[in-house]
Simulated assay, not measured.
Amino acid sequence: MLLAFDTIPEEIVPHMRDGEGEVHLRKFSDPLMKVMNGTLPVGATIGMHTHETNSEVIYILSGRGKVLCDGVYEPLEPGSCHYCPKGHGHSLMNDGEEPLRFLAIVPEH
């Protein structure tokens, strides 16, 4: 199945997971998986949350930022790939100087 994100309507999510600012998402989901093409504007965050029933992989397409995972900050840049296993928590932050574009894959377990 081809996921053509440019044909999926953009959803603007304010304060995602109690984060700062807003997240711009183009999302595909079914009962087994979510795939999201997202953009975090400068200064925006996705708040800390725990993956109780799933895990998440975030691949950075452009921009710079960081993720806080299990109490450790990890720097992110284009080509970085972050993995948050089931039962763990993380938060995504754009502390860079341009929008942070990412692809996130969230499989259910």
Score class of each variant (00 low, 15 high):
Met1Lys: 01
Leu2Met: 01
Leu2Val: 09
Leu3Pro: 01
Leu3Gln: 09
Ala4Ser: 05
Ala4Ile: 07
Phe5Arg: 02
Ile8Leu: 11
Ile8Thr: 08
Pro9Gln: 10
Glu10Phe: 01
Glu10Ser: 05
Glu10Trp: 00
Glu11Lys: 13
Ile12Ala: 05
Pro14Thr: 07
Met16Gln: 09
Met16Asn: 04
Met16Asp: 03
Met16His: 03
Arg17His: 15
Gly21His: 11
Val23Ala: 07
Leu25Glu: 04
Leu25His: 07
Arg26Ile: 11
Arg26Ser: 10
Lys27Asp: 05
Lys27Ala: 08
Phe28Ile: 12
Phe28Arg: 04
Pro31Met: 15
Met33Asp: 02
Met33Leu: 15
Met33Cys: 15
Val35Cys: 08
Val35Lys: 06
Met36Trp: 03
Met36Asn: 09
Met36Leu: 14
Asn37Gly: 02
Asn37Ala: 11
Thr39Cys: 06
Thr39Trp: 01
Leu40Gln: 08
Leu40Thr: 08
Leu40Trp: 10
Pro41Arg: 00
Pro41Lys: 00
Val42Gln: 04
Ala44Asp: 09
Met48Ile: 03
Met48Val: 02
His49Asn: 12
His49Trp: 06
Thr50Tyr: 02
His51Cys: 07
Glu52Pro: 05
Thr53Arg: 14
Thr53Asn: 14
Asn54Tyr: 13
Glu56Gln: 15
Ile58Arg: 06
Tyr59Ser: 10
Tyr59Val: 08
Ile60Gly: 01
Leu61Ala: 03
Leu61Arg: 07
Ser62Gly: 01
Ser62His: 00
Gly63Cys: 02
Arg64Gln: 09
Lys66Ala: 11
Lys66Leu: 14
Val67Phe: 13
Leu68Val: 04
Leu68Arg: 03
Leu68Cys: 09
Leu68Ile: 09
Leu68Pro: 03
Gly71Met: 07
Gly71Ile: 09
Tyr73Ile: 08
Glu74Asn: 12
Pro75Ser: 14
Leu76Met: 15
Pro78Gln: 03
Pro78Lys: 03
Cys81His: 01
Cys81Ser: 04
Cys81Ala: 11
His82Trp: 14
Tyr83Cys: 11
Cys84Lys: 11
Pro85Gln: 13
Pro85Glu: 14
Lys86His: 14
Gly89Gln: 05
Leu92Tyr: 13
Leu92Cys: 08
Leu92Arg: 04
Leu92His: 10
Leu92Asn: 06
Met93Leu: 15
Asn94Trp: 15
Asn94Ala: 13
Gly96Asp: 10
Gly96Cys: 10
Gly96Phe: 12
Gly96Pro: 10
Glu98Trp: 04
Glu98Tyr: 02
Glu98Phe: 02
Phe102Thr: 08
Phe102Arg: 12
Leu103Met: 13
Leu103Tyr: 05
Leu103Ala: 09
Leu103Cys: 06
Ala104Arg: 06
Glu108Asn: 13
Glu108Gly: 09
Glu108Ile: 03
